[in-house]
Amino acid sequence: MNSIASSFLESEPAASQRAGLTCGPILCVESVSKTYGTHRVLENITFQMQVGEVIAIIGPSGSGKSTLLRCINQLEPPNEGRVTIGGVTIDAGNPPARRDLVALRRKIGMVFQSFNLFPHLSVLRNVSLAQERTMGRSRKEADAKSMDLLARVGLADKASQYPARCSGGQQQRIAIARALALEPEIMLFDEPTSALDPELGLEVLAVMKELALSGMTMIVVTHEMHFAENVSDRVILMAEGHILEEGPSAEIMRAPKTERAAKFLSAVRDR
């Protein structure tokens, strides 16, 4: 992307502020709630995020962490509340048009716990497909960009192979490259290392750390406490569908204010 376009993007928040819109930061989640049948999975979640921030969402199982992530990119539309990303607002009250959903999803990159690479396409094609179809790039352009991204995650030599031939850690790094290919404004990570054994998980976490240091806006749902404490700027600790605590990572991780949070943190540290 050329420098004019990127500087335009950076000035977008300022422009929307001048226009008087309520969301200056890159992401606003306002009073989001989600119910499955009779089970209230998310209760009145509200938080904001600035460009370049890295937020780790931690908490016990069933706290709604993954659901929150999926509500942000509308994979699961919330029952109540509003999500605003880079000026585009989706309100639970007004079901959005297909076009708006697609536009929203192009601003957000997502990495799944189970990678979800396309097994019938080569690694290169996995990364190039969306560029050709949604960004209108030519095959050559897309492939060149894909090779750059694969090199960035350390897997340029796997380009012509198929996902089945790659280890779990490699597949997840390819998934990260695939998500980055669309030049998203925010990257969402849904427990990216939970399905990997610790050794393979480390390679993925290294890529995520490099991404964070390069200024990408990221939300990471994770059980990796080391990442939460050292790489992320802020930590959101969730339990039973609520935000229990929220704040700078060092603060939350070392000096939690609530007993519940303290209990959770000591349990995971002792493992």
């Binding site: 999803r105 189970s114 979800n116 396309f118 179809r133």
Partner: peptide, 29 residues
């Protein structure tokens, strides 16, 4: 697998493209 369809959605493929490039090739196999 449902994850495949979700992956197609999150990388911004529209419905037709998701069918054409992700669901149909795998489904036919």
């Amino acid at each position: 697998p449902y994850g495949q369809k979700e992956a197609a959605l999150v990388i911004g493929l529209n419905g037709v493209d998701a069918l054409r490039f992700v669901v149909i090739p795998q489904g036919l196999r």
